[in-house]
């Protein structure tokens, strides 16, 4: 009897596969192609594209945690920018005394200094994230309106505190010697720091994909994004998972802050709010809760920003908005909507 039922439901077929949605993947390729035609000179195009990829990776590193936190617990943290700023200031504090290492003409010493700064910034921002979740987010859990207001208030306080502690002036962040300048291959110049940013972004993306797809924690996060109640009914404490993801997201924002500060070479506590505008656009384009969408969205936004900065500098940021509007017209939930119960 059961066999009969199974044959009917399974109706002589191969194992069904998830429909792979490849159209969004074609978007960056199309955008790069269009830009190639408009820009005309291949070397300029290549420089801009590398710049876009580097910027996209940095935004992805910052945005990925935010989008997961939203997907998992329906919490949107407008204060996410604070962790970016904290990361930048912590890295500056670490790199200051390490100036000899930073200025040394040795890739290993440079990397060691940078790695230490990134480590401190990442863990510092992560620890702060834990505190932020406890003090700011938890009391207004499940109340969207208050969440938006409170986290925005948290951002103001954090920025002001950073200015009170480190001084309100603009800070400089020097690139280590080994990452200044470009690698020149024939006519083509590849800026070293941008290559580094792309590498770090890819590593973060791959690590995240591996975690999400190959580990139990990752499975729980993906399941929780879809239906957190059922995850609880299976006996898992989703709050702990959420706190962990929140801290990890904050830590990544701290790492992103280090990269962004190095990329811009100067910063103030407002560095977070500056990037957040792009971050919000990215997670909306990608589909709230989707890491893959966030990755793609970051690349698209960064491409749009860099190409238009060259082609029509005055409308660079407005172009990101247009991109967002166009994508939302096509897919109102973003490129990769997350299935919600």
């Amino acid at each position: 009897m059961t066999d009969q039922a199974a044959t009917r439901t399974g109706a002589a077929d191969a194992i069904p596969q998830a429909r792979l949605d490849l159209i969004p993947l074609a978007l960056p390729v199309a955008l790069a192609g269009l830009a190639f035609l408009l820009i005309g000179t291949p070397t300029t195009w290549l420089t801009l594209t590398l710049a876009a990829l580097a910027m996209g990776m940095m935004i992805f590193v910052i945005a990925s945690g935010l989008t997961l936190v939203f997907g998992l617990m329906d919490v949107i943290n407008f204060g996410h920018g604070a962790f970016i700023a904290v990361g930048a200031y912590l890295a500056m504090t670490v790199l200051g005394p390490l100036a000899p290492l930073v200025q040394a003409d040795s890739l290993m010493l440079n990397l060691a200094a940078l790695a230490l700064a990134a480590l401190v910034a990442t863990f510092g921002a992560g620890a702060l994230g834990l505190a932020f979740e406890r003090v700011v987010i938890r009391p207004v859990y499940g109340q969207h309106l208050k969440q938006i207001l409170i986290t925005m208030g948290g951002l103001i306080i954090a920025e002001q505190l950073l200015h009170a502690i480190f001084g309100g002036d603009q800070k400089a962040m020097a690139l280590p010697t080994a990452f200044r300048g470009a690698i020149v291959v024939g006519d083509l110049a590849f800026e070293k720091f941008r290559l580094l940013a792309v590498a770090i972004g890819l590593v973060v993306f791959l690590a995240m994909q591996l975690t999400l797809n190959r580990t139990r924690i990752g499975l729980l996060i993906r399941a929780g994004v879809e239906n957190s109640e059922m995850v609880e009914a299976l006996g898992y404490r989703i709050r702990r998972l959420f706190v962990g993801v929140f801290a990890a997201g904050s830590a990544l924002a701290g790492l992103g802050g280090v990269l962004w500060a190095l990329y811009r070479e100067t910063f103030t506590a407002a560095i977070g709010s500056e990037v957040m505008v792009l971050v919000f656009i990215v997670i909306i384009i990608g589909g709230l809760g989707s890491v893959g969408g966030c990755f793609l969205g970051a690349i698209l936004v960064a491409m749009m920003a860099n190409y238009t900065a060259f082609l029509a500098p005055k409308v660079a940021l407005a172009s990101s908005i247009l991109l967002m509007v166009a994508i939302l017209m096509w897919r109102p939930q973003g490129l990769y909507p997350v299935a919600k119960r």
């Binding site: 499975l219 729980l220 993906r222 399941a223 879809e226 109640e229 059922m230 009914a233 997350v338």
Partner: peptide, 18 residues
């Protein structure tokens, strides 16, 4: 039913085995 549609059958069942 609340199956996790993004996860495979194997992953759904693996998660349920605590």
């Amino acid at each position: 039913m609340a199956v996790f549609s993004d996860l495979t059958v194997a992953e759904n069942i693996t998660l349920a085995a605590r």
